[in-house]
């Protein structure tokens, strides 16, 4: 796939202040097609806040967000999702009482659903829209190997399956950019390696740019082309994953300074 040089997601000097706390301080990110970037940092570094800012759940105090060239700073989440930015949540948020198939079809709603009048009168356009949604969901479910679960209630699935369905629902919006918030949390090692293969496949075959927040270092190191490290809301490192391991600032953020470490010992 030919890489498109124009950035799919461009975040400039994004900041968020909660009262006296600067939770995110001038965060920058450029994602191009098929980028796979990791975002790490100690607890409370502002990773999830950065996600919530990018997806419109929180309004930034300062800074700009551009999706596929469009300035969408301060736009509502559904506008941002429609523009091509999808996400998953740290604590899975599925539509528990709907089936797996319905969860995934919801991802296609914004692009295909028939209008209210067409739905109430069941005009031909309504049936076409439903068929498109079904076909699209069907193909996605097949490719995610969720066929056996399609008719199950999403709330009844195991943790690992719920993770896969949630990623499926995000992919059903046909995003250019996918933000994964701790996708491996609660997964066992074999599930984690399956997930890694899956993320890589989505990234390579669909050309979707991915930003992944994760605490599982083997996943981050094995997967990402580029790594960002956030500490106290500010970026302290951006570059190749291997360099992060030897970077002074990163080590300090995770382990504290040498002197303090000695004093504690």
């Amino acid at each position: 796939m030919q890489a498109d040089a124009a950035p799919k997601l461009e975040i400039n000097d994004l900041s968020k202040r909660f009262g006296g706390l600067l939770a995110v301080d001038r965060y920058n990110l450029v994602l191009r097609q098929a980028d796979l970037v990791g975002l790490i940092g100690p607890n409370g570094a502002g990773k999830t806040t950065a996600f919530n800012l990018a997806t419109g759940i929180l309004r930034p105090t300062a800074g700009r967000i551009r999706i596929a060239g469009r300035d969408l700073t301060g736009a509502r989440p559904h506008v941002i999702a429609k523009a091509g930015l999808a996400r998953t949540f740290q604590n899975i948020r599925l539509f528990a009482d709907l089936t797996v198939a319905e969860n995934i079809m919801c991802g296609g709603h914004a692009r295909h659903a028939a209008g209210t009048v067409s739905t109430l009168l069941q005009l031909p356009s309504f049936w076409r829209a439903e068929q498109t949604l079904r076909n699209e969901a069907y193909r996605l479910i097949e490719s995610l190997d969720l066929g056996a679960l399609a008719a199950r209630r999403a709330g009844d699935l195991s943790y690992g399956d719920q993770r896969r369905v949630e990623i499926g629902r995000a992919l059903a919006t046909q995003p250019d950019v996918l933000l994964l918030d701790e996708p491996a949390a609660g997964l066992n090692p074999s599930e984690t390696s399956e997930l890694m293969a899956f993320i890589r496949k989505v990234n390579e075959t669909l050309g979707i740019a991915i930003l992944v927040v994760e605490h599982d270092m083997s996943l981050i190191m094995g997967l990402c082309q580029r790594l960002q490290v956030l500490n106290r809301g500010a970026l302290i490192f951006e570059g190749a994953p291997q360099q992060a391991q030897t970077n002074e600032a990163v080590i300090e953020a995770y382990l504290g300074t040498r002197r303090r470490a000695k004093a504690n010992a």
Binding site: H78, A81, H109, A110, F126, A170
Partner: peptide, 27 residues
Amino acid sequence: RIKYSSLGRAIMAVRENELAAECSGIN
């Protein structure tokens, strides 16, 4: 007709988890 349509699924999605529905492109 509302319940068994994309419109109905989207309305139920809002009931189940409004934030996730919004982030899936549902107004």
